[in-house]
Design a protein around this nucleic acid. Structure first.
Lengths: 222, 222
DNA sequence: GCACGATTGAAACAAACGTTTGAATAACTG
DNA sequence: CAGTTATTCAAACGTTTGTTTCAATCGTGC
């Protein structure tokens, strides 16, 4: 029996069960049963339940980041385009179905109700993206924009993406399950990008036909 | 000993503890100890723990709605102004400190990680606001706007408000605790209103000085 | 004051949980 | 092959939890 195999089986089962049921309701016995391992394996390989949970969160973060990497833009890429790509990437990380599904679901749980154990993991997940977005926003804004306003604008963009991740049950209910289920990542990307760029003056407002010049030529007061 | 008093003491203690610790970690023993009641009181007054939780959620919803009522607008109030008031009210419900604090915190928990027991309570909390917002958005949009787009626009507005409710720990960390702590509900109202109205063409984009005509005269294609 | 229903309290129950223990088994190395 | 280390297992431990039980006490109405 391969040691890495047992450890990994427990970790995968743990991720799945913690993602479905959360930390408290997910039990060590259930995890080990599903992993085909003895209950003492948790103590042997991870030390205790809490450390197993942390290991699962770290695994989820690594896999998710690796599966949907942040794009690399050639120099001179307009910030509006980079914003679109950022939103698309972020939405893919948040919403894209993957097999197995637990990585995304576990990160969702951790973001919705943070545990002390994984606050650093979540921050490691979020901060690189926050830095990318910050760079984009700074290029979109005129010089002299306050730091607070820049943050608020970034939050407004991120909030729209997170909404479909965190509030999916409520949104689905308000909109109707069928209609909501037809929303695609591309559709949401287009909407959020346009809403945000319009707010910043880089796209026509949503009350104007989208066929009009979508990217408004915009001179920056440098 | 007044029966309503014991029942109410248990309910208040439960709300507080469920808000702080969640359903699983909040124990019947701790609740009864804090309420100065015997453990059998839960079965006697509420039936079981789950029903006690439901009663606490219902209480939180009623109190919260009562404390921050949705405004009533005189006929002819411009939709942009109504949107501002809506956002302000919503933010107050989400963010405004109140004593005791558990009503808001419990609704936050329920919205972040919905339980089966309270999905109807949350919907009862959200749906009236969704209807108000929908009315406002429909007046802001040109005739012929698809229902899906109207929903997405409403979600974009709501998402920005919810962000400061649900993602407060992360946002605080990215922005710095001091800076974040200085954000007021009025400041957020101004930002979210302007971002949203600019996206819809009713305000100058955020890249233009706010001093310019803040409410853009807007003719609707009716 | 009495009867009845409401309320409260202490003790107990049964189940579940994370963790530990120590022996058995398997794997590895010289 | 023997010794050592690694891994696995079943049983047990101690604690906690929601719930139940039933008697005692309290409150109310006639």
């Amino acid at each position: 029996m391969d040691a890495d195999d047992t450890r990994n089986r427990v970790l995968q089962a743990a991720g799945k069960i913690f993602a479905e049921s959360g930390y408290e309701l997910g039990t060590v016995r259930e995890i080990c049963e599903q992993a085909g391992a003895n209950i003492a394996a948790v103590n042997y390989y991870f030390g205790d339940k809490k450390s197993l949970y942390l290991a699962a969160c770290v695994e989820a973060q690594c896999v998710r980041e690796g599966a949907v990497p942040m794009p690399e833009w050639p120099p001179g890429t307009p910030p509006a385009q980079r914003l679109r790509d950022f939103i698309h990437t972020f939405l893919r990380r948040l919403l894209e179905e993957e097999r197995p599904a637990w990585h995304r679901q576990l990160m969702l749980r951790e973001m919705a109700t943070p545990t002390e154990a994984c606050s650093q993991v979540v921050e490691d997940y979020i901060r690189p993206m926050a830095l990318v977005l910050r760079g984009i926003v700074e290029e979109l804004l005129p010089a002299g924009t306050s730091e607070v306003d820049a943050f608020l604008i970034g939050f407004s963009v991120v909030a729209q993406c997170l909404f479909y991740h965190i509030n999916q049950p409520i949104a689905s209910r308000l909109m109707g399950t069928d209609e909501y289920g037809r929303l695609t990542i591309d559709k949401l990307t287009e909407h959020i990008t346009r809403f945000s760029l319009a707010a910043l003056g880089y796209a026509a407002p949503l009350t104007r036909p989208a066929g009009q010049a979508e990217f408004v030529s915009h001179e920056r007061a440098h």
